[in-house]
């Protein structure tokens, strides 16, 4: 048994403390220690994007980051996307409206990648969307409806005053 350390960080807006071993990845700690299983494991080596999260607003593969690297930092996972009153994030709603998921296992990762994209490029082109989502594998949809959902959110938000389209976290 390796010595455990206390990891403190801000997770989906709340300060959390958790014991973890030095070799544990962020993905393992999220899923096995914090029981936040919305972040999925598809390959464990950064090729599928199912475990994508936002670390200080930057898109990362949580399977490629050691948990202790997150000390003192801020993390957003799929569980933190909707508002606390249950209102879905516009991307979540758009994925539902566009039927942009079939089995749904890749969906959390896609939502985080899409949020990272729209945070940086509020009105992306189709090729920008495809480029930003290229780190996420989906085997069910052929990406068509996912790309349309993301473009739809971008266009809708661009047409609205910023206060209405403000996103949580």
């Amino acid at each position: 048994m390796r010595k455990k350390s206390v990891l403190e960080f801000t997770l989906n807006g709340e300060t959390r403390a958790v014991l973890c071993e030095p070799q544990q990845t962020l993905l393992e700690v999220l899923r096995d220690e914090l029981r936040l299983t919305g972040t999925k494991e598809g390959c464990s080596n950064g090729n599928c994007g199912a475990c994508n999260v936002l670390l200080d607003g930057v898109l990362v593969n949580s399977c490629l980051i050691l948990a202790l690297e997150v000390q003192g930092r801020t993390l957003l996972t799929v569980e933190g996307l909707a508002r606390s009153d249950g209102t879905l994030h516009p991307l979540q709603q758009a994925f539902l409206d566009h039927a942009a998921l079939q089995c749904g296992i890749c969906t959390p990762g896609f939502l985080l990648s899409a949020k990272a994209l729209l945070d940086e490029h509020p009105l992306p082109t189709e090729s920008q969307v495809r480029f930003w989502l290229a780190g996420n594998l989906c085997r069910c949809t052929g990406y068509d409806k996912i790309v349309r959902a993301v473009l739809d959110v971008a266009r809708t938000q661009a047409a609205q005053p910023p206060s209405v389209s403000a996103t949580p976290v």
């Binding site: 899923r31 919305g38 972040t39 799929v78 569980e79 979540q92 969906t107």
Partner: peptide, 16 residues
């Protein structure tokens, strides 16, 4: 779809 909200919020439970 009826299971849609669970699947976009990370609540749906898969095998692992």
């Amino acid at each position: 779809r009826p299971d849609g909200v669970d699947k976009v919020t990370g609540r749906a439970l898969y095998g692992a």
